[in-house]
Amino acid sequence: MHGQPRPYWNPLVAGLILGLALLATFLVTGHGLGASGLSARLTAALGSWILPEATAANAYLGGYVKAGAPLAGWITWEVLGVVLGGLIGSLTSRRFRPKVEGGPRLTPARRLTYAFVGGALVGFGARLARGCTSGLGLSGSATLAVAGFVFLIAFFAAGFLTMRLARGAWT
């Protein structure tokens, strides 16, 4: 049904290309790459659709609503590009697979529950930290910002610690 998927790139080659893309982003826009900023904009957009008054009055989301069209911004176009790039890459390499991917011992329903819980922790954490692995870990560290390295240390430490409890979900 599917052809044999092409192998992944060597991690150093992938890192080199990602680094050049990040450098180009800095030179063109004056800032780095991001991703989680869109989740705040999506929340503001959905909020002003479902609960317009509460969202406009919210101390955190109000600013996005006041500026009008919360989704119209650089991060939205960029993440649209990320999805497009991921689609081109996975289709041309025969790595595209519609599936629920998880450890062999998890049912798909449980895998999706963990995906939601993990996503919620990440969504909350990214708003608190003012960025995610892309915006702080990658882009912040590339500017040698202390904030970027503090983020990376906390991210990797918590990841290893949590995996001691969560490894049954993946192995």
Partner: peptide
């Protein structure tokens, strides 16, 4: 925030940027 993202990554399997390419890969 960084620790919550690390924990959420270990439980949920992605970070924000990688979830976008995960979605794009089906």
């Amino acid at each position: 925030g960084g620790a919550l993202i690390g924990a959420g990554f270990a439980i949920g399997g992605y970070c924000p940027g990688t979830s976008a390419v995960g979605l794009a890969s089906g």
